[in-house]
Amino acid sequence: MTNPKGPERKSQPPRAKPATPRVPTAADILAAAQSAVEAAQTAAGQAIDSAQLTGRTAFDTAVRLPPASIQLAAQLPDLIENLTTAIERLNTTIDRLDRTLALAEPAFVAYDRLLTRLESATTLAEDLFSRLDKLPGVSLLGRLTGRDHPEPSAPEPKSRRDRKK
């Protein structure tokens, strides 16, 4: 990045303070008051001009509005009222849901406890079956009880080629 004032900034020597503080005279105060009045009058004139221009523009826009826009603008109060009603219903529904969830909280806690116990029981059962499978003779017992039999798969349909032969 370059410096807009040049590559090197030159420091300016500090300004010396006047030896004696200057006390404003009545003429200085009068001149300052007159310049403040002129500035206020200028600002007021500019504000009035701006307000007149804005009013003129608003009137021109209102006169040139198409009827559909005027109809939409006329429906705005009803739309705002309907929106207010919808927001009130939404707040009521949110409150009802909040109360329902507060009542259901103990059930959720109980479900969480039950699920952790079921998971630990399932893990224990899987561990037990894996250890039993390692014992000699258990595979024979499994075949006798029908535990090791895979589920029979559905027979595949014969194709037309096989029927014709």
Results as ranks from 00 to 15, higher is better:
T122L: 02
R143L: 07
R96A: 11
Q52I: 06
P155D: 08
A31E: 13
T100L: 10
G55P: 01
R9F: 08
L30D: 13
T20L: 04
P14V: 00
S139I: 02
R56Y: 11
R117W: 05
A102E: 13
G55S: 14
L65D: 15
R147V: 13
Q41F: 02
L141D: 04
P155L: 11
R15Y: 00
L114P: 03
P7V: 03
V63M: 07
S139N: 04
A26D: 11
L97S: 04
G146L: 01
V109F: 04
Q75P: 02
F108I: 08
Q46R: 12
T42C: 02
A104R: 10
R143K: 09
P157I: 00
L72G: 07
G146S: 04
G45W: 01
A68F: 01
K134Q: 15
L114C: 02
T2C: 00
D133V: 00
E81D: 12
P21C: 06
K164H: 13
P106Y: 01
E8S: 14
A110T: 12
D95P: 03
D162C: 07
V109L: 07
A104P: 05
E126S: 15
L140V: 09
S35W: 05
L144D: 02
A47S: 11
P7E: 05
T123G: 05
E105T: 10
P106V: 05
K10Y: 02
A32S: 06
A125T: 13
L90Q: 12
L97T: 11
A27S: 09
F59P: 04
V63C: 10
P67I: 07
Q71K: 08
I48C: 07
S69T: 15
T54H: 01
A27Q: 06
K158T: 15
A110E: 12
P7G: 12
P7N: 15
L128V: 14
S153Q: 15
P66S: 11
A43L: 05
I80L: 15
N82E: 09
Q71G: 08
L90C: 13
E81K: 02
L118W: 03
E126T: 14
P7Q: 14
A51V: 03
L135Y: 00
R117M: 08
A36L: 06
A154P: 10
F59W: 10
A26F: 08
R89N: 10
E105V: 01
K17W: 02
A102V: 06
D95S: 15
N91S: 11
L76Y: 09
R161C: 12
S139F: 00
T42A: 14
A74T: 11
R99A: 14
A104F: 03
S159Y: 05
K10D: 00
S11F: 13
P66W: 13
E119P: 03
A104G: 09
L79D: 03
K164C: 12
A44H: 06
L53S: 15
R147G: 01
A16M: 15
I94R: 14
T122V: 07
T54K: 07
T145Q: 04
L83K: 14
R56I: 13
L90H: 06
D148E: 08
E156G: 03
P21Y: 02
I80F: 06
F59M: 11
R96C: 07
L103S: 14
A16C: 05
D98N: 13
L97V: 06
D95C: 09
